[in-house]
Protein backbone atom coordinates (compact mmCIF):
# COMPACT_ATOMS: atom_id res chain seq x y z
CA UNK A 1 0.00 0.00 0.00
CA UNK A 2 1.20 3.51 -0.81
CA UNK A 3 0.24 5.85 2.00
CA UNK A 4 0.78 9.52 2.81
CA UNK A 5 0.87 10.64 6.44
CA UNK A 6 0.27 14.34 7.12
CA UNK A 7 1.89 15.40 10.39
CA UNK A 8 4.85 13.82 12.16
CA UNK A 9 3.92 14.18 15.82
CA UNK A 10 3.52 11.21 18.13
CA UNK A 11 0.68 9.64 16.13
CA UNK A 12 2.12 10.45 12.70
CA UNK A 13 5.60 9.16 13.46
CA UNK A 14 4.22 6.09 15.22
CA UNK A 15 1.98 5.29 12.27
CA UNK A 16 4.86 5.85 9.84
CA UNK A 17 7.06 3.46 11.80
CA UNK A 18 4.38 0.81 12.04
CA UNK A 19 3.24 0.97 8.41
CA UNK A 20 6.84 1.16 7.19
CA UNK A 21 7.76 -1.87 9.26
CA UNK A 22 4.81 -3.73 7.72
CA UNK A 23 6.30 -3.13 4.28
CA UNK A 24 4.11 -0.26 3.06
CA UNK A 25 5.43 2.67 1.03
CA UNK A 26 5.13 5.59 3.42
CA UNK A 27 5.54 9.29 2.66
CA UNK A 28 5.46 11.71 5.60
CA UNK A 29 4.76 15.43 5.11
CA UNK A 30 5.54 17.70 8.07
CA UNK A 31 5.95 21.50 8.22
CA UNK A 32 8.52 21.52 11.03
CA UNK A 33 11.76 19.83 9.98
CA UNK A 34 12.76 19.11 13.60
CA UNK A 35 9.60 17.01 14.09
CA UNK A 36 10.96 14.39 11.67
CA UNK A 37 13.27 13.38 14.53
CA UNK A 38 10.24 11.56 15.97
CA UNK A 39 10.70 8.94 13.25
CA UNK A 40 12.56 5.83 14.35
CA UNK A 41 16.14 5.27 13.27
CA UNK A 42 16.26 3.31 10.07
CA UNK A 43 12.88 4.61 8.82
CA UNK A 44 13.06 4.02 5.08
CA UNK A 45 10.00 5.92 3.88
CA UNK A 46 10.06 9.34 2.22
CA UNK A 47 9.91 12.56 4.17
CA UNK A 48 8.96 15.99 2.82
CA UNK A 49 9.20 19.22 4.79
CA UNK A 50 6.44 21.69 3.96
CA UNK A 51 2.88 22.86 4.51
CA UNK A 52 0.57 19.83 4.47
CA UNK A 53 -1.97 21.83 2.41
CA UNK A 54 0.58 22.99 -0.19
CA UNK A 55 -0.54 21.62 -3.53
CA UNK A 56 3.02 21.37 -4.89
CA UNK A 57 4.19 19.37 -1.88
CA UNK A 58 1.16 17.07 -2.07
CA UNK A 59 1.81 16.42 -5.77
CA UNK A 60 5.51 15.89 -5.07
CA UNK A 61 4.44 13.26 -2.54
CA UNK A 62 2.44 11.59 -5.31
CA UNK A 63 -0.99 12.22 -3.80
CA UNK A 64 -2.62 11.54 -7.17
CA UNK A 65 -1.61 7.88 -7.11
CA UNK A 66 -1.86 6.79 -3.48
CA UNK A 67 -3.88 4.00 -1.89
CA UNK A 68 -4.40 5.85 1.36
CA UNK A 69 -3.86 9.10 3.23
CA UNK A 70 -4.17 9.97 6.87
CA UNK A 71 -4.21 13.51 8.31
CA UNK A 72 -2.91 13.55 11.89
CA UNK A 73 -1.69 17.13 12.42
CA UNK A 74 -2.61 18.89 15.69
CA UNK A 75 -5.31 20.95 13.91
CA UNK A 76 -8.82 19.50 13.41
CA UNK A 77 -9.50 22.05 10.65
CA UNK A 78 -6.35 21.18 8.71
CA UNK A 79 -7.04 17.46 9.06
CA UNK A 80 -10.63 17.74 7.85
CA UNK A 81 -9.73 19.97 4.89
CA UNK A 82 -6.81 17.74 3.89
CA UNK A 83 -8.98 14.63 4.12
CA UNK A 84 -11.78 16.12 2.02
CA UNK A 85 -9.34 17.38 -0.61
CA UNK A 86 -7.63 13.99 -0.77
CA UNK A 87 -10.99 12.32 -1.39
CA UNK A 88 -12.59 14.86 -3.69
CA UNK A 89 -9.68 16.32 -5.67
CA UNK A 90 -7.08 13.56 -5.72
CA UNK A 91 -9.44 10.58 -5.46
CA UNK A 92 -7.45 8.82 -2.76
CA UNK A 93 -9.51 5.68 -2.01
CA UNK A 94 -8.91 5.45 1.73
CA UNK A 95 -8.69 8.56 3.89
CA UNK A 96 -8.76 8.91 7.67
CA UNK A 97 -8.53 12.14 9.67
CA UNK A 98 -7.78 12.49 13.36
CA UNK A 99 -9.99 15.02 15.17
CA UNK A 100 -10.24 16.19 18.77
CA UNK A 101 -13.78 17.62 18.78
CA UNK A 102 -16.21 14.74 19.46
CA UNK A 103 -19.22 16.88 18.46
CA UNK A 104 -18.04 17.10 14.87
CA UNK A 105 -17.33 13.41 14.27
CA UNK A 106 -20.81 12.37 13.21
CA UNK A 107 -21.14 15.31 10.81
CA UNK A 108 -17.82 14.62 9.12
CA UNK A 109 -18.79 10.99 8.73
CA UNK A 110 -21.88 12.20 6.88
CA UNK A 111 -19.63 14.41 4.74
CA UNK A 112 -17.70 11.32 3.70
CA UNK A 113 -14.63 11.82 5.88
CA UNK A 114 -13.73 8.93 8.10
CA UNK A 115 -12.47 10.30 11.39
CA UNK A 116 -10.89 8.92 14.51
CA UNK A 117 -11.64 11.07 17.52
CA UNK A 118 -8.75 10.43 19.91
CA UNK A 119 -10.69 12.23 22.65
CA UNK A 120 -13.76 9.98 22.50
CA UNK A 121 -11.65 6.89 21.96
CA UNK A 122 -9.43 7.72 24.94
CA UNK A 123 -12.41 8.43 27.18
CA UNK A 124 -14.21 5.18 26.37
CA UNK A 125 -11.03 3.10 26.57
CA UNK A 126 -10.09 4.53 29.97
CA UNK A 127 -13.65 4.14 31.26
CA UNK A 128 -13.58 0.52 30.08
CA UNK A 129 -10.29 -0.18 31.83
CA UNK A 130 -11.51 1.44 35.03
CA UNK A 131 -14.69 -0.64 35.03
CA UNK A 132 -13.22 -4.06 34.34
CA UNK A 133 -13.12 -4.25 30.56
CA UNK A 134 -12.76 -8.05 30.55
CA UNK A 135 -16.49 -8.21 31.15
CA UNK A 136 -17.61 -6.85 27.79
CA UNK A 137 -20.26 -9.33 26.60
CA UNK A 138 -19.40 -11.28 23.42
CA UNK A 139 -23.13 -11.82 22.82
CA UNK A 140 -26.42 -10.98 24.44
CA UNK A 141 -29.46 -13.27 24.67
CA UNK A 142 -32.30 -10.79 24.76
CA UNK A 143 -31.57 -7.82 27.00
CA UNK A 144 -31.31 -9.74 30.27
CA UNK A 145 -28.71 -12.43 29.68
CA UNK A 146 -25.14 -11.96 28.41
CA UNK A 147 -22.48 -14.37 27.26
CA UNK A 148 -19.04 -13.31 28.54
CA UNK A 149 -15.57 -14.68 27.87
CA UNK A 150 -13.25 -14.34 30.84
CA UNK A 151 -9.67 -15.51 31.29
CA UNK A 152 -9.47 -17.43 34.55
CA UNK A 153 -8.01 -15.14 37.25
CA UNK A 154 -4.83 -16.52 38.88
CA UNK A 155 -6.45 -16.79 42.31
CA UNK A 156 -9.11 -19.19 41.00
CA UNK A 157 -6.66 -21.64 39.42
CA UNK A 158 -7.09 -25.06 41.07
CA UNK A 159 -10.59 -24.23 42.39
CA UNK A 160 -13.68 -26.09 41.13
CA UNK A 161 -16.11 -24.58 38.65
CA UNK A 162 -18.75 -24.50 41.41
CA UNK A 163 -17.01 -21.49 43.06
CA UNK A 164 -18.10 -19.23 40.20
CA UNK A 165 -21.52 -20.78 39.74
CA UNK A 166 -24.53 -19.00 41.21
CA UNK A 167 -27.84 -20.74 40.47
CA UNK A 168 -30.11 -18.45 38.49
CA UNK A 169 -27.36 -15.85 37.95
CA UNK A 170 -24.01 -17.20 36.72
CA UNK A 171 -23.22 -20.44 34.85
CA UNK A 172 -19.94 -21.62 33.37
CA UNK A 173 -21.29 -22.84 30.04
CA UNK A 174 -17.98 -24.02 28.57
CA UNK A 175 -14.23 -23.88 29.06
CA UNK A 176 -11.60 -23.52 26.33
CA UNK A 177 -8.38 -25.21 27.35
CA UNK A 178 -5.36 -26.14 25.26
CA UNK A 179 -7.06 -25.71 21.93
CA UNK A 180 -10.31 -27.53 22.72
CA UNK A 181 -13.56 -26.50 24.33
CA UNK A 182 -15.68 -28.66 26.64
CA UNK A 183 -18.67 -28.46 28.97
CA UNK A 184 -17.47 -28.62 32.59
CA UNK A 185 -18.89 -30.46 35.60
CA UNK A 186 -19.37 -28.53 38.89
CA UNK A 187 -16.26 -30.33 40.21
CA UNK A 188 -14.03 -29.60 37.20
CA UNK A 189 -10.88 -27.84 38.40
CA UNK A 190 -9.90 -24.55 36.74
CA UNK A 191 -6.41 -24.45 35.22
CA UNK A 192 -4.12 -21.54 34.37
CA UNK A 193 -4.81 -20.30 30.84
CA UNK A 194 -8.45 -21.45 30.84
CA UNK A 195 -10.89 -19.25 28.96
CA UNK A 196 -14.28 -19.38 30.65
CA UNK A 197 -17.44 -18.93 28.61
CA UNK A 198 -20.02 -17.64 31.06
CA UNK A 199 -23.76 -17.18 30.80
CA UNK A 200 -24.65 -14.34 33.14
CA UNK A 201 -27.81 -12.52 34.12
CA UNK A 202 -27.06 -8.89 33.17
CA UNK A 203 -28.18 -7.73 36.62
CA UNK A 204 -25.62 -10.07 38.22
CA UNK A 205 -22.52 -8.55 36.59
CA UNK A 206 -21.42 -6.92 39.85
CA UNK A 207 -21.75 -10.26 41.60
CA UNK A 208 -19.53 -11.84 38.93
CA UNK A 209 -16.90 -9.11 39.33
CA UNK A 210 -16.84 -9.82 43.07
CA UNK A 211 -16.43 -13.58 42.44
CA UNK A 212 -13.59 -13.05 39.96
CA UNK A 213 -11.72 -10.76 42.35
CA UNK A 214 -12.00 -12.99 45.41
Amino acid sequence: MRVIILGCGRIGSGLAARLGYAGHHVTVIEPVAAALAHLPEGFRGRTLVGDVLDRRILLEAGIDHQDALTAVTPSDDVNIVAARLARLVFRVPRVVARVYNPRAVEIYRRLGVQTVCTTTWGISRIAELLSYSELEPVASLGSDVDILDVAVPPLLVGRPVSVITVPGEIQVAAISRGGRTFLPQPATRLEAGDLLHLVVLAAATDHLVALLRQ
Partner: peptide, 9 residues
Protein backbone atom coordinates in the same frame (compact mmCIF):
# COMPACT_ATOMS: atom_id res chain seq x y z
CA UNK B 1 -8.55 25.76 6.74
CA UNK B 2 -11.12 27.11 9.21
CA UNK B 3 -12.97 28.96 6.43
CA UNK B 4 -13.05 25.78 4.34
CA UNK B 5 -14.42 23.69 7.19
CA UNK B 6 -17.17 26.29 7.69
CA UNK B 7 -18.16 26.37 4.00
CA UNK B 8 -18.16 22.55 3.83
CA UNK B 9 -20.40 22.30 6.87
Amino acid sequence: PTNLVITSL
